[in-house]
Structures are given as structure tokens and as C-alpha cells.
Design a binder for these strands. Structure first.
Lengths: 305, 305
DNA sequence: AGGGCGCTCCGTACGGTGTACGCAACGGGC
DNA sequence: GCCCGTTGCGTACACCGTACGGAGCGCCCT
């Protein structure tokens, strides 16, 4: 989808590229654009803004917007994000986290955040570009609130375990975080960098008979992370379901059991039948614990073999 | 939230419970309810329907709805679901799967399915109760399309691995399935029962020095499943992002790299810096392979210890 | 001093979602 | 021929993210 302001920006950008507008020339002013394209001030502003971000033009207050000398180098960017970041981004992010912690990601909407803060909905967009950026900022706070233990333990195994446990407690406190993270498209989350580094570094200390190449170490680190997250993504749905059915897990189990037992014909499915029949103490936490222990055992076999 | 028809059903249900309406009595007809409560036919029908499902009343064509002799036993239920299931549920589910396979769960909407089938949106609700039930039906088809290998291998390890691989190929073909599954609130999915059973059964054959209790075996089975799913949930986002940015993974990596490298100060984060600097061959598939091998190694240590 | 400029602020509105409910027509039993 | 339960679809609601509109502010140059 190309939006109106993107079209206008592309238009003017082409005129700069063609040489019709030379360095030092003033590009059409916001009001000029308003008249020419039949759009609103804000839209025109946004178009010029886009050109600025690309470093093609430079805004001069009270004067106009001019084509820059050599494209690509612009001090504006940091300035802008600086002034944007200053006042209340933190309030917004904090409010969003409070909602997400309580009601999960499905309950988190821009309108809801705004209501909680007593602000108009659209005013949030002065502080965050969009929902995804907000989520990234929330993740950043999670990382910041759950730093790694400072002197990390010494051996590779203790180190890896410490990293995994840090993630786990973070996910327990903020179940939505597991969902919000993406491996395949890593967001750049400042406070998360240290965690990634520590995970990677853990396997440097491995007592391998042969040296481990970077690729192998990456595999071990990422796999461990994926496991932790894989267990953690189940926390949020459990909470959500508990909340909007008003049933505790136990109540729910009791209600869900009859059809499950009905499906589990003891003749055809003996193990399942026995499993549903007995009261088992299986929680996400106990699953995390067994999985972590087994996985690291497996790493040990691999590393010392 | 209690809907209108639920309120009416509760109302009449109370009158039956109180004895005001005795077995054999006719409860208010649909049109009576329409008049009394000021609602539409369909709403009244739905209220009576709810009472039927609970087995409190029985509908007699051309006569009316009467209170049943002994509550709880009603042949209606199977009849109804039978007639509902007959015509085109399968078409709906198949169409939904085609969309989900192609565009992921976010692209799957009731309107979209209806459009593809050339049907009015609301007509879908004759075949499935709601979106969640549709998802369960889709999952069922996935299980059905990916049965376990028929003579399962003999040893516990080969068996567990076979199960894990079956899940993995299913997830690769239908990435959305990983998201749609829930452990904490297991849906009853007919064709999935066999998979669950096989997973549990695998650890029966373990050559444990001491006998394994059911709880431990459950932990091993569920943890393995959680790992596979934990890796698989990443497939869909990767596909979705590739689709709506139009970038291949490689293109995207190239675009994402500069800011990542900028964040990875080699002095502070040497491993991360080296990782981002080199071309690594890490795919979800390779992560699955290492993880599976390591985890089962870990199981082996645990089981033979 | 005044006019033009970039810019900030927030409100309105669009295109999407799932699905509750309304309305009209159908066919069977009395 | 009446009243019954039933079917089939359309309309409308409450929600979502956010693009765009329009008014007003304060800076800068002439």
C-alpha cells in the first residue's frame, strides 16, 4: 500500500533526482503542496518529513525546506527522535505493559492505553510510531527489568542455565513477551543485546574436544532460547482462558475431562486413558525444569563427546 | 457476557427447575417468546435450542417444545450435529486451510473463506459454530493428513523421534497449526488422539534402571512436543513477513544488518559482532535438527542413568 | 509588523475483524 | 388453514490499527 504522503514524497524525490530541483533550491512548501495536491497540512508535512528522513532535504524553520548539498547526511534524524523520545514515551510503555501483564496482548489496544492514561487515542502516536514499535519498546523494558546475574557463573552449563532462567522468570512476569519476540526477524532491542551476547558467549567456555565453530555455537544458543520461549508461549493463553471463562485451571480440567476421557478409549489408547484418569502434577514450570535439565544434559553429551 | 438468547434460556430453565413447568408441559413456543420478550424468531429458536442441548426439553415438529421426562438423555444432539455435519463442513474447512496455508492465520477471516467459496459470510455458521471450532476442525485435518508411520520403530528413541518428525513435517506444511494448538487447554481433536497416545507410549519402552512413573513419562512427552512446536511457531511469522514486505529472507537480512551491526559494538559484544558479520547457515530446519538430537541425547542420559 | 513557514495537536473516518440478532420463507402436524 | 419448529441470509454492533483532515502556534525573514 502506498499512502498519499508517500506518493507526494516520491513525486518530489523524483524531481530532485532528475535535477529539476538542485541543491539549495526550495522544494514546495507545505501550503504549496496542500494547494497543488489537494491534501491537508499534516499530510504535506508528513511527505516532507519522509524526504528529510531520507536525507534529501533539510527543513529551515520560518524559511522553507531546501534540497541538501550532499544527500545522506542529516543531523535531523537524531534530533527528531530525541525530541520525540523526551516527554512521556515511558509513561505510554509503562501503561501498555500494565495492561498486557494483566490481560495479555489481546487486551492491549491503543485506545485502551489512551483511556488508561486519560489521553486522546491518536496522541499516543506522538510517542510511538505504531503498535509494533510500542511492542519493541515494551520488550526493551522487560530486558532492562531482568538483567543477567552480574558475575555470570563460570562453567558453560551454569552460564547457559543462568541465561535460560533469566528468560524464564521474565516470561513468567510478562507472559506476552514470549509472543512478542521474533527470531526470524530480530527486532533491535537495546537492552536485549546483552542477553543475546551472553547466550552466545556461554558456549565459548565449552570443554570441547574439538573447537566449536561459530555456527554450531549459534545453533546451541538459539535452540536453547527457542525451547524456553516455546514453553513460555503457553503461559499467556492459560491466563487468558482462566480470565475470560472465570474458571481456575482445576475447574476447567474437571469440565474438560469427561469428553477427553470419552475420546480416550482405554482399549485403543491405554496410556492416554490412564493419563486422563489420574491426577498429575504437571505445570508449565515443571515442564520447563525437566526440559532444561534434559536439553543441557544433551548439550553436555555433545560437547564432551 | 450473557447474550439475549442465553438470558431467555436461563429464564425458562428456571421455570422448569422450579416445577412451574412439569415434564410433558409445553414450554413457550418460539412465537410466544417473540411476543413476550420482544425478540426475533431466530433468537427465540436459539434459546429453545440451548435448552435442548442441555437435555431439558424436546422439540416436536408441528407440536411444540415440551419438557422432557427425565432430563439429561436426549437423542436430539447427535441428530442435530449429524445433519449439521453432513453437507459441506468439509468444503469450509478445506477452503480455510488453503487460505491459512497460503497467507497464515492473520489472513484467515470468515468473510475471506465465504468469498472464496462464493457463499454469504453468515452461512458459514451453519457448518461451524465459530472460529475456534473451525480451527479445531482444521487441526483435525492436519492430524489426519499426517498420520504416524504405521509400524512405529521399536526403541523408545526412534519412536519419540518418529513422533517429533511427524509433527515437524506437519508444521512445515501447515505453519499456522503450531499457533493454533494449545497445551494448557487441549482441544479434543479426534485424529490427534493417536499422536498423543504414541508420544506417551514411546517412553514405556525406555530401558530405565528404575521404573518410570506416569508423571515422568508425561513430562518427557509433553516437553518434546513443546520443543517441536516452539521451533515451529517461528515458521509462520517468517512467511508472513516475507510476503507482505515482498523481501526474501536474504534481502531482509541485508537490510536489517546495518542497525544490528551498529548495535553490536565489537568491544562490548564480541560474539554478537562476529555472528552478525559472518554469513551463517542457520535455518529453522537446522535448529530443529540440532535441538531434537540434543534433547533426545539428554533423554538418553536421563533414562539410562 | 506581517506574512509565510514548519510543526504540533487531536478528531474523524476508513477498512477490517467476529458474530449476535432480525427478518422472511419453508414444510410438517393437527 | 393454522401454528409449530426450522432454515438461510443480511444487517448491524463493537472492536481494532491508523491514515488523513483541519486548526492554531511560534519562528524567521522581509
Amino acid at each position: 500500500m502506498t499512502t498519499t504522503f508517500e506518493r507526494i514524497a516520491a513525486d518530489i524525490g523524483a524531481r530532485i533526482a532528475s535535477g529539476e530541483l538542485a541543491p539549495g533550491d526550495r522544494v514546495p512548501s507545505t501550503r504549496r503542496i496542500v494547494a497543488d495536491y489537494g491534501v491537508a497540512m499534516a499530510t504535506a508535512t508528513r511527505a516532507l518529513d519522509a524526504l528529510q528522513r531520507r536525507g534529501l532535504v533539510e527543513a529551515r524553520r520560518g524559511v522553507g525546506t531546501v534540497v541538501v548539498e550532499q544527500p545522506g547526511r542529516s543531523a535531523r534524524d537524531s534530533l527528531r527522535s530525541g525530541s520525540r523520545t523526551a516527554p512521556t514515551v515511558d509513561d505510554v510503555v509503562r501503561a501498555a505493559m500494565a495492561i498486557a501483564d494483566e490481560e495479555g496482548l489481546p487486551g492491549l489496544s491503543m485506545r485502551r492505553i489512551a483511556t488508561d492514561l486519560g489521553l486522546p487515542t491518536m496522541s499516543l502516536y506522538r510517542h510511538v510510531a505504531n503498535r509494533d514499535e510500542l511492542l519493541a519498546a515494551m520488550l526493551d523494558r522487560v530486558y532492562a527489568a531482568h538483567p543477567l546475574p552480574d558475575p555470570l557463573p563460570d562453567g558453560w552449563r551454569d552460564r547457559a542455565e543462568a541465561c535460560a532462567r533469566t528468560f524464564w522468570t521474565a516470561f513468567q512476569r510478562h507472559p506476552w513477551a514470549a509472543h512478542a519476540m521474533s527470531i526470524t526477524r530480530p527486532q533491535v532491542v537495546p537492552h536485549g543485546v546483552a542477553h543475546t551476547e551472553a547466550m552466545l558467549a556461554a558456549f565459548d567456555r565449552a570443554p570441547a574436544s574439538r573447537p566449536l565453530d561459530l555456527e554450531t555455537r549459534m545453533h546451541l544458543a538459539v535452540t536453547l532460547f527457542l525451547f524456553v520461549r516455546g514453553v513460555a508461549v503457553n503461559i499467556e493463553p492459560a491466563l487468558a482462558a482462566r480470565q475470560d471463562t472465570g474458571l481456575s485451571d482445576e475447574d476447567w480440567m474437571n469440565r474438560a475431562k469427561p469428553p477427553l476421557q470419552a475420546a480416550a478409549d482405554p482399549r485403543q489408547y491405554p496410556h492416554l486413558a490412564r493419563a486422563t484418569a489420574s491426577e498429575l502434577d504437571i505445570t508449565l514450570d515443571s515442564l520447563f525444569e525437566t526440559g532444561l535439565a534434559r536439553l543441557l544434559d544433551g548439550y553436555e553429551v555433545f560437547l564432551t563427546r
